[in-house]
Every structure is written in C-alpha cells, then in structure tokens.
Amino acid sequence: MKTKLFLIYILLMATNVSMAEPTLKKEDKGVGQQHNQQNEDKKIDDAEVEKYYAKLKYPPGFYQGAFLISFMGGGSLAPNGSFISHEKNYDSALQYRVVTKEVSQDYYPQAAVRSQDPGLYFKPTYTPGVASQFDFEYGWREKIGLGFTIMQNSLNAKRQDIIPGLSYYKEYVDPFPRERTIYRGNSMSFLATYHPIPRNFFDPYLVARAGVVSFTGEAHAGLTHDKFVYSNQISSGIGSIVGVGGGLNIYLGRYFGIKAEVDYYREFLKADQFSMRTLNSYQAMIGVFVNLSNVQYRLEQY
C-alpha cells in the first residue's frame, strides 16, 4: 500500500512539473522579447540622435552640413582687359596733345615753360587697390559646398587729364598727376566648391563663382576729351563677373581657422560712357573663417 501511495505521489509531481514548464518558458520568452524591443528602441533613438548631430560632431574639416563664414583681404595682381587698355590709349593720345600744346598749360609762370619748349607731361601709373571678400559656404554634400560671395575691389591711377568744365572754348590739362580711382566694383556671386580631403585639418579646395557687379570710377568714351562732358565719373556701371580659383583652409580647432586663396576673375562691364569693356585680374587673399555648425553644437552643450 505504501508503495502504491509513493508511486501516485511521484506521478502527481511529474505532472505538475510538466505543466509548469511551458508557463515558465512563456514567461521567459516575454521577458526576452521586451528586452529585445528595448534594445531596438534604443538603437532607433541613437540613430536619430546621430543623424541629427552628425553634422555637428565631426572633427575639424569640411563635411556635409558644415556652414563656413569667412573674411579675406588682399590685392589684385596684373589687371588687364579692354577697360584698362582703353584708358592707357587715352593717356597716350593726351600725352601727344600736351607735348604738342594742343591743350593749354598757360597757368604756369612764363619762365617755367618757354614758347618753343614742349608741354609738361608726366607718365601715368596704375596700381590695384585693396580687395576684400566675404564668403558664405554650406556643405551641400560630403565634398561639395554651395554659397555666395560678396566682394569689393578697386583700381587706382595717378595721371593727368583734361580738367572738365573749366572752359568750354579752351582745354586745360592738370599741371601735375592726380590720384584717381578709375574703378571700384562691388559684386555678389554664387559659389561652388570642391573639397577633395574632407574632415581634415588641412582642407584644400577648388572654387568657381559667377554673379553680377556694380561699379563706379572714371572712364572716357573716346580717345579724346569730350568738351560737352562735365565729369569723367562713370554712371550706371553694371556688369557680370565669373571667376575660378583654389585655396586652403587650415583649422586651428573645431570652430575656426585661417585660409588663403588665389583667384582669376573676368568682368564684363558696361556704363553710360561705353557699351562693353572687360576687366581681368588675379587676386591673392588671406583671411579667417568660422564653422558655425560646430559653434552651434558647442552652445547646445551648455
């Protein structure tokens, strides 16, 4: 009898264990699924954070989402083109007229210039003025930037000229050369850049620009002075500008750095004084830049 009771007890215990095992497996499976779901949610959140902050967390260098603002200053090198050549041809024609005394210099004391001597003429000089440039560039792609440029450049000359409006019947020339700004241009152009080595402290790049320019200065319609013109000042000066160049950004940290750039520009100009003239120049510039994306990220940390 005792043996039968013991066998019945063993049978009941085995039945309870077999019934409880699926329940335990079901509970373990539920906990595992919950844990996996938490991991998946965390991965999604991390991916969203990384996606949002990726453009801010990159090390120094160019990258997609970078926003660079830069200022550079420098000068023009070897300017040329029909705008300058026309003014130099005007100077040559004026020199001949001064030497042959077709224009008057009778404001000199009589002892200074004898009647048989040629007129007094001094050779003109042309010197490029200071150029300045602001760039706004956004990292459209990993290696490609888009933006715009605001630039100002000028060209000065020290030359003699007919004094306009002094006399309708008689032309007088300057006794000595005077400093003049013959060209001052303000341009706004779109830019596209290519950065072959992104995310690097040393960031070389190529750049192309195209836009519009407005300008003032002094110019002449022909090779001789027009006595009906009261001023040689350029009026309604407008045109277009295109340029290509190359440069180097050197990051001094994540937020700013120094840069240098060399460009070639070609301008197509027209004004009330002339229908179309060109101005070509090389420019060498140096300046500083700030990466506003990383600055924004730094501010968000506080």
Score class of each variant (00 low, 15 high):
residue 170 K to M: 08
residue 176 F to Q: 15
residue 167 S to E: 01
residue 181 T to K: 07
residue 168 Y to K: 12
residue 161 D to M: 10
residue 165 G to Q: 09
residue 178 R to A: 06
residue 170 K to I: 06
residue 154 S to L: 00
residue 183 Y to S: 00
residue 166 L to I: 09
residue 149 T to Q: 15
residue 182 I to N: 08
residue 158 K to R: 07
residue 160 Q to S: 06
residue 149 T to C: 15
residue 184 R to S: 02
residue 178 R to L: 08
residue 166 L to D: 02
residue 179 E to W: 01
residue 167 S to W: 05
residue 149 T to G: 14
residue 173 V to P: 05
residue 155 L to T: 02
residue 183 Y to M: 04
residue 159 R to G: 06
residue 155 L to R: 01
residue 150 I to S: 10
residue 160 Q to C: 06
residue 183 Y to K: 01
residue 155 L to C: 01
residue 159 R to T: 02
residue 162 I to Q: 11
residue 151 M to D: 05
residue 169 Y to S: 09
residue 163 I to S: 02
residue 169 Y to R: 03
residue 171 E to K: 13
residue 150 I to C: 12
residue 177 P to K: 00
residue 145 G to F: 08
residue 184 R to V: 00
residue 148 F to I: 04
residue 179 E to R: 00
residue 163 I to Y: 09
residue 162 I to F: 10
residue 163 I to H: 05
residue 179 E to T: 03
residue 185 G to H: 14
residue 150 I to G: 10
residue 173 V to S: 10
residue 144 I to F: 07
residue 186 N to C: 14
residue 165 G to K: 05
residue 144 I to Q: 12
residue 165 G to I: 11
residue 178 R to H: 05
residue 151 M to G: 03
residue 182 I to Y: 01
residue 148 F to W: 12
residue 149 T to N: 15
residue 181 T to W: 00
residue 152 Q to M: 14
residue 155 L to F: 11
residue 163 I to K: 05
residue 167 S to F: 03
residue 168 Y to Q: 01
residue 182 I to H: 06
residue 168 Y to H: 09
residue 181 T to M: 02
residue 180 R to I: 05
residue 183 Y to A: 01
residue 150 I to A: 13
residue 156 N to G: 07
residue 182 I to L: 05
residue 165 G to T: 11
residue 176 F to E: 15
residue 149 T to W: 11
residue 161 D to H: 12
residue 153 N to I: 03
residue 173 V to R: 07
residue 145 G to S: 15
residue 166 L to Y: 09
residue 151 M to F: 13
residue 146 L to W: 00
residue 186 N to A: 15
residue 153 N to V: 03
residue 155 L to E: 01
residue 148 F to D: 02
residue 147 G to M: 08
residue 164 P to K: 09
residue 156 N to S: 04
residue 158 K to M: 06
residue 180 R to Q: 10
residue 165 G to E: 13
residue 159 R to I: 02
residue 154 S to W: 00
residue 147 G to C: 09
residue 184 R to A: 00
residue 178 R to S: 14
residue 164 P to L: 11
residue 169 Y to A: 03
residue 176 F to V: 15
residue 168 Y to G: 06
residue 145 G to K: 07
residue 171 E to I: 04
residue 151 M to C: 10
residue 154 S to M: 01
residue 150 I to M: 12
residue 182 I to E: 00
residue 186 N to L: 15
residue 162 I to W: 06
residue 169 Y to T: 11
residue 158 K to D: 14
residue 179 E to V: 05
residue 158 K to Y: 06
residue 170 K to T: 05
residue 186 N to S: 13
residue 172 Y to P: 00
residue 163 I to Q: 12
residue 176 F to S: 15
residue 146 L to Y: 00
residue 145 G to V: 02
residue 153 N to E: 08
residue 157 A to H: 02
residue 165 G to M: 08
residue 177 P to H: 04
residue 171 E to D: 06
